[in-house]
Amino acid sequence: MNLTVALFGIAREIVGQSSLTLTAPAGQSAAGLLAELRTRYPALAGLRSLAVAVNNEYAAADVPLHERDEIALIPPVSGG
């Protein structure tokens, strides 16, 4: 299945674009997606807190993903 992931904050800087599309095995979990992205973009592995949003809901690690899900990676930002 194809997944589209919207990127925010420093995750966008690391990947170099505001969203990306990738092919993932059916039933891929949120944690599995994150692991795949960290392999592709090793700098993402340096982010300790990185919220994964699925259909605007904070996703636990084992949440299964579906092709039309709206997925976003949201790291905390600290500027004031």
């Binding site: 300790r48 807190s49 919220a51 904070y58 905390p76 600290s78």
Partner: peptide, 25 residues
């Protein structure tokens, strides 16, 4: 609950060194 782990030094490019669009704040 949202961000359990405080980010490490490496992932906090703030401290007045990052640019910001003036109207954003």
């Amino acid at each position: 609950c949202l961000f359990p782990e405080p980010p490490s030094a490496a992932e906090a490019p703030d401290c007045n060194t990052t640019g910001v669009l003036n109207v954003l704040p």
